[in-house]
Write a protein that binds this DNA or RNA. Structure first.
Length: 618
DNA sequence: CTAGGGTTAG
């Protein structure tokens, strides 16, 4: 009778355990189970309790369950319970614990099965050394589990995670009749090795597709910076009536962020609301990122404040958004709030903070942040952080301090450290230091296109034509090619790409006419082209013409052709905007009475009435 | 107790 009376409450108590259960509640349930004598009367109660805790997907409950298993369990743990714990750890905060549990499993004289191995492989996929996975592969083969399809797709996933796609391929080709999940694993493996085109072939040949396979393909494009292809595929996904979910939208928003596609991003936001998709932390964070990368920091912050659950990614996105939009004060304030709310910042947080200080010229504050990161948060600075510091000094004209800082770095400065210095030399016309930085760069990497271009422009600015031609010679000799400039503009939800001197756009003729018209009106307004910085791969007589062909000019001209009066023109460029284009855009904003937003590799430029938000400091 | 897809910087 006592047994019956107590059984029902136990089971209903256990079924209440989920990821919202606090550790305190779990302890209460434990105490209840002990006092009610469940562990002595019901032979499976202890195992049920452990499994419920482990599978709650709450890290504190998982670790409580783990410790209970090792501290004199009142009933012998079952095989399935130990497997459940291994499973929970494999996607939890410390996957390594899977392996100590595996040893425990063996010490209890259980024999691992195909379930066990899928979990172990998932844990091994996050092993950086990449040695565990192949070892487990050997073991599971000896246990005869190598032909199980779940194990096989886990193997593919594991090999692709440790960078051995060829091994993943071998496993895949041994499977005679791969199912949907296995093909999707292989598809992801291909995209992770950089081969999206093969992945796409595989995707096109699939006899059936589900949401995950669509998502995998879209994410593959987005990760490889083929955002436009990603958006096109998303369009196809909608056309075919496939079901989209939160993950789909995260990838799509990331693509919009890359492209600066505000219309489509806004559309996605509305779609999320209309279709009641759950605005979880990840999705919310990608929305913040999309808005801030599209230059709409207000909307980004509106989403930020509306989110009740935030993680370090969320805070970082907001901090970075404020920094790149030039709102240094707010960025620093937000960080204070983050600290007060007890969210622990990471290395990425400090990249954002240092960039914020950098664009605002807050040298002292930047120094403080750098020491705060090292001394208080014990975060080891990476190249990115050192780069920000060099930029901080260099931009502020403190070239000596920048050099001193490089020399005092505990790690070997990389190419971008020196290139940052080189960029400051360009800003402050320091030929000698520029040559020194260039020498250091060529010691590390002979063919750095950006550095060659910078040095040549330093020479050109200082009318040292011999220097210009010698850099030109060297580039020819070494076959250094400048990364092609590319600008994108979204018009009525369609993304258009422009390349330097590219004539491929269908409305090229109209664009060319508009450029002529712009030139005419700008000259009347007093604009003079600056041909000093033109790339030397273009012949002398083409100079002025070539200037008007920089990709951002094409994109802006296209915007003038097709966008209604008063509509903001927003352009995203893959390189830094050059001095002439910046100057030109300021004139256009005034002469044509247009707001123009250009996002370059580093930051935003909001042009209005002939002025830019960067105050000509970029 | 199973396998595959998602966020921040550079």
């Amino acid at each position: 009778m006592a047994l019956l009376k107590n059984l029902i409450p136990h089971h209903s108590a256990l079924s209440l355990i989920d990821n919202s259960t606090s550790l305190r509640q779990a302890l209460q349930i434990h105490a209840h189970l002990l006092t009610s004598g469940a562990f002595t009367h019901d032979p499976s109660s202890f195992n049920s309790f452990l499994s419920s805790l482990a599978l709650s997907s709450s890290p504190p409950l998982l670790s409580y369950s783990h410790s209970l298993l090792f501290t004199s369990p009142p009933q012998p743990p079952s095989f399935i319970t130990v497997n459940s714990l291994i499973r929970a750890h494999s996607s939890g905060p410390s996957p390594d614990l899977c392996f100590s549990l595996y040893r425990h499993l063996l010490s209890l004289s259980f024999s691992p099965n195909h379930y066990t191995f899928t979990f172990l492989l998932r844990a091994a996929a996050s092993d950086h050394g990449g040695l565990l996975g192949p070892a487990i592969h050997g073991v599971l083969t000896r246990f005869g589990c190598g032909t199980d399809r779940h194990v096989q797709s886990s193997l593919i996933h594991m090999y692709s995670s440790i960078g051995l796609v060829s091994h993943a391929r071998v496993i895949f080709s041994d499977i005679t009749d791969p199912d949907l999940v296995t093909i999707t694993s292989m598809l992801t493996a291909l995209t992770e090795s950089g081969d999206v085109d093969s992945a796409r072939e595989m995707f096109d040949e699939m006899s059936e597709r589900d949401t995950v396979s669509w998502n995998a393909m879209i994410a593959g494009y987005v990760h490889l910076a083929r955002s436009k292809d990603g958006l096109d595929l998303f369009g196809e996904m909608l056309n075919q009536g496939a079901k989209v979910n939160e993950s789909t939208m995260v990838s799509v928003l990331t693509a919009c962020a890359h492209l600066g596609a505000l219309d489509q991003g806004t559309w996605v936001h509305a779609y999320i609301q209309k279709n009641r998709l759950k605005l979880n932390v990840t999705l919310g964070t990608s929305l913040i990122d999309m808005y801030s990368k599209c230059g709409s920091i207000e909307r980004a912050m509106k989403v930020f404040w509306s989110m009740k659950e935030k993680n370090v990614f969320t805070w970082n996105s907001a901090i970075n958004g404020l920094a790149s939009n030039g709102a240094a004060e707010e960025c620093l304030k937000l960080f204070e709030l983050m600290e007060r709310q007890g969210v622990v910042p990471d290395g990425v947080t400090f990249v954002g903070l240092l960039q914020g200080c950098c664009v605002a010229g807050l040298v002292q504050k930047g120094r403080e942040m750098f020491s705060l990161m090292k001394d208080q948060y014990r975060i080891e600075p990476l190249h990115e952080h050192y780069g920000c510091m060099i930029d901080l000094y260099g931009r502020a004209g403190k070239l000596d301090e920048a050099v001193q800082f490089i020399h005092s770095m505990p790690i070997e400065p990389n190419v971008s450290a020196w290139r940052t210095l080189l960029h400051s030399c360009k800003m402050y016309n320091n030929v000698e230091l520029g040559e020194y930085a260039m020498k250091e760069i060529t010691n590390i990497e002979v063919n750095n296109d950006g550095a060659h271009v910078l040095l040549s422009n330093i020479y050109a600015d200082n009318r040292i034509w011999k220097g210009v031609s010698s850099v030109r010679e060297r580039m020819k000799e070494k076959g250094v090619k400048k990364e092609p400039g590319c600008s994108v503009i979204e018009v009525h939800g369609v993304v258009h790409e422009f390349f330097v001197r590219g004539k491929s756009h269908p409305r090229y003729r109209e664009i060319k006419l508009m450029l002529g018209e712009v030139d005419r009106r700008l000259r009347l307004a007093g604009y003079q082209a600056n041909t000093k910085e033109v790339l030397f791969d273009i012949e002398e007589e083409d100079k002025e013409d070539a200037l008007s062909w920089h990709s951002e000019k094409l994109a802006i001209a296209f915007g003038l052709v097709v966008l209604e009066d008063g509509v903001e023109i927003r352009v995203v460029k893959n390189l830094r905007v050059c001095w002439d284009c910046h100057h030109w855009t300021k004139f256009v904003s005034k002469t044509f009475d247009r707001k123009i937003v250009v996002r370059d590799r580093n930051r935003f430029h909001h042009f209005k009435d002939g002025l830019c938000s960067c105050k000509d400091y970029w």
